[in-house]
Nucleic acid binder design. Structure first.
Lengths: 235, 235
DNA sequence: TTCATTATGTTAAAATTTGTTAACTACAGA
DNA sequence: TCTGTAGTTAACAAATTTTAACATAATGAA
């Protein structure tokens, strides 16, 4: 049976029995499931086969679920559900404030988990499909598909690949802060990323091409201590 | 009181105390909240002022929470969180399978609910940023999305990130006292907050940029022992 | 292949933003 | 008015970003 096109779920759980049970249950409900016993293993999998949703056990050996959540959330909008043996309020709150979409306590009802997964996937995949491909702002026309940026006078502005990736990420999330961490992973889709400071340089080069006055940027704004924001007016 | 630009949450709950508590908590956390005691009342509200998220008590008199969920989900992708006094697995599963994004059991932790709301809104409002949210006062134009502040003569006033955050919080809650504690949490989105005194300095810097006579502030007023208030006249 | 050109990444100094502190001033209650 | 508390101000320290110069890697043409 072909698994291509099915939503891809990665389970990060070091307890083999729970892992296998979950996998087979989700698999039989129409999802493509990949298992990872630890954080490094999961990162390896995600690097070559991006997931739609992560199911993470909070209490992992080594890098724990909360840490994974923070790192993933910094660089993507992937759906994250935490699973924990502890029912403590504080644990749950910390997980959710870290950006996990949901927090489920063991022992959990499989059918409930399935419903939660389904609802969350509806949200995350809807977002993906809503993505536009042509954006207009400040006289520029930016086509994400053809990678072309055109000035008001019709003149094409040449963007390098890295510049394109950064601009695309920013434009796709108008008025939302994009961390350097998130932006570097847009530049290289590989595992080892360059210095986050590299983003500063790319932004500078973009500003030179986009802004009337690069010293007082209007389109790509700095959010001190946080990252960069697209603040152009989209038409 | 103007609350333009804030996410709009509608609470549907027939128990007055729970309703009021929730409303004031969410309101003080930067949301625009409308209360409805019943389904018909809620529909009336939604018809003239669409919401970003519904907080629905399951056990309502008349049309209950599950029914509202089904109807709303049939016609929109609005975020829905169900609240229930019953902790039964089956109730929860039915609610979730009906399309509710989340199901919270009483007694719930407010902070947890807030985290869940925040995460869900992040999913549902990703596109809302395209709209403009502009405030006008004392000749200034302040656009929350593009982070731009413009003087009466059209000259742009540069705001640093922290200054922007403070001004945005004040403007969103005109004529309401904002405590230093509230304002510092606006400045830093990270865990550890700076000294509340930092706010004083930011307000001073804002006054220098906004006020005709910073010694006799008209727009950002001090409330001795309490905090600061936006007292500009919004147009 | 080699060379020239362009793109990408790194680094350090300069500039800016943010946060802290302390002296000073204003306020409110006794 | 006195007195303790709270707010303003300025100067400074710490953190972060910008800028420019340069090193390395990738690309394309001869």
């Amino acid at each position: 049976m072909s698994r291509i096109g099915l939503p891809h779920i990665v389970i990060i759980e070091d307890e083999p029995v729970t892992r296998a049970t979950l996998t087979s249950y989700l698999d039989s409900n129409g999802y493509r499931v990949t298992e990872a016993a630890s954080a490094p293993k999961a990162e390896e999998i995600l690097a070559r086969d991006p997931a739609d949703l992560l199911l993470i056990d909070v209490n992992l050996e080594g890098k724990d679920g909360l840490q994974i959540t923070r790192e993933q959330r910094a660089q993507s909008e992937i759906g994250i559900i935490l699973i924990s043996g502890r029912t403590d309020d504080i644990d749950r709150i910390v997980g959710l404030e870290m950006g996990a979409d949901d927090y489920v306590c063991k022992p959990f009802n499989r059918r409930e988990l399935l419903a939660r997964i389904k609802n969350l996937l509806r949200r995350t995949t809807a977002l993906r499909h809503l993505s536009r491909t042509v954006f207009r702002f400040a006289g520029f026309t930016f086509d994400i598909n053809t990678r072309r940026l055109t000035r008001a006078d019709g003149e094409a502005v040449r963007l390098t690949r890295a510049e394109y990736e950064v601009l695309a990420q920013l434009v796709r999330h108008p008025a939302a802060v994009q961390s350097r961490e998130k932006l570097v992973t847009c530049i290289t889709h590989r595992q080892e990323s360059p210095e986050p400071r590299t983003v500063d340089v790319l932004v500078r080069r973009l500003r030179k091409k986009l802004e009337d006055d690069p010293k007082a940027p209007q389109i790509i704004t700095t959010s001190h201590g946080e990252g960069y924001i697209f603040t152009g007016r989209l038409e």
